[in-house]
Every structure is written in structure tokens, then in C-alpha cells.
């Protein structure tokens, strides 16, 4: 049995709740670390960044599902909803840590959203994710039909906005967020090439 078949067999055996559970565990664990000194001397920013970066990583993992299937025949589609909903949860926690523990004042939260472009961008990504999370259930998929797929293409915008938000919040042109952007653009390009080929065929 080849590598691909083994992965596919393994993916068939793993129930999706395992992904939800494993994906959710870092949230309380990081919070515990932050509260007990495990995230260094400035735990608020550290926790905020950990949640934000995990969200971006989960979004990227979601983007990998289609290319993996098309290019390598590896089928992880059954986990995609879990990845997306986990990403949304982490973005929400990222936002809450920022608003409640970091900024600490509702008027300033609003002022920052309106006034500071990188926060406006991050906030738009969050807002765009709300309908995606709300329709991540079988009932919505059935009800929306082909429109569901169209709606969920918003993910591409969300992940790009997330990467720009990350680059912009750092001082200077830093390497790490740029690597994220390159990976995201590559994954989206792969998908576009795939879509183009399908159409030509």
C-alpha cells in the first residue's frame, strides 16, 4: 500500500471530532501558560499573537486540502470544516484578547478599528468569516446549493487579509509574516491553475 493510500485509509478511520479536540486544546493551554508566566514577561501580546498565528495556520491548512487532493490524490476533505471552524474560533479569541486584555477600553477598540488600517483589515477578515462559520453546517450546504461554494470562496479573501494584517502589524519588513504571504499566494495560485485546467479540459 503506497503512501497516499495509507494517508487516505488513516483519514477515513479518524473521526472529525478528533480534529476538533486536538485543534481546540492549544486554546486553554496557551491561556494557562499566559496566566502562569509560561509565555514570557509580556503575556498579553504573546497570547494575542499565538491565537492570531494559529488562526492563520489553520486557514492555510484549509487551503491545502484541495491542492493535496488534486495534485497527490490525498483526500482530507472531511476535515476541512473542522479546520475552518477552528480558525474562526481562534480569530475570535485573538480579537477578544486584543479588545479585553490589550486595549481594555471599548471606545478605543472602536477608534482603532476605524482609524488604523491594519486593524481595519484584520477586522474585515473577521467579519467576512462570520457568514462562513454560520453556514458551516450540513443544513446550510443543502439549502444554499451551488451558492454555498461561491460564498465560501470568501476564504481566499479572508486568508489574504489575514496575511496583510500580519505583515502590517510588525515593525519594518519582517521575514516571518512575508513567508506566510508567499505560502498563501502559492496555494491560491495552485488552485487557480487547477481551476483553469479543469475549465480547459
Amino acid at each position: 500500500m503506497g503512501f497516499r493510500d495509507r494517508i487516505n485509509a488513516w483519514a477515513r478511520r479518524i473521526p472529525t471530532w478528533v480534529i476538533y479536540l486536538v485543534g481546540a486544546l492549544p486554546a486553554p493551554w496557551l491561556f494557562y501558560l499566559g496566566a502562569t508566566g509560561g509565555l514570557g514577561v509580556e503575556p498579553v501580546k504573546a497570547l494575542e499573537h499565538e491565537y492570531g498565528e494559529l488562526a492563520l495556520q489553520l486557514l492555510i491548512a484549509g487551503l491545502c486540502v484541495t491542492p493535496l487532493r488534486r495534485q497527490f490524490g490525498i483526500n482530507l476533505v472531511k476535515f476541512r470544516r473542522a479546520l475552518g471552524l477552528l480558525a474562526f474560533s481562534y480569530v475570535t479569541m485573538h480579537l477578544l484578547v486584543w479588545a479585553v486584555l490589550d486595549v481594555q477600553a471599548l471606545d478605543r477598540v472602536w477608534a482603532d478599528i476605524v482609524k488604523r488600517p491594519y486593524i481595519t483589515i484584520g477586522m474585515s477578515a473577521f467579519v467576512l468569516m462570520v457568514p462562513l462559520a454560520a453556514t458551516s453546517n450540513n443544513w446550510s450546504v443543502r439549502r444554499l446549493g451551488p451558492r454555498w461554494r461561491q460564498l465560501h470562496r470568501l476564504t481566499y479573501a479572508v486568508v489574504l487579509l489575514g496575511a496583510v494584517h500580519f505583515i502590517w502589524l510588525r515593525k519594518g519588513w519582517q521575514v516571518e509574516p512575508l513567508v506566510y504571504l508567499v505560502v498563501i499566494v502559492a496555494l491560491l495560485a495552485l488552485r487557480m491553475r487547477g481551476a483553469f485546467r479543469t475549465r480547459v479540459a
Binding site: G34, A35, G37, V41, E42, P43, V44, L47, L101, D102
Partner: peptide, 8 residues
Amino acid sequence: RRIGGGLF
């Protein structure tokens, strides 16, 4: 934020 104050 004064460093050392913790999460809250």
C-alpha cells in the same frame, strides 16, 4: 502596559 503585570 508595564511589563511584569501579567495577563490581567
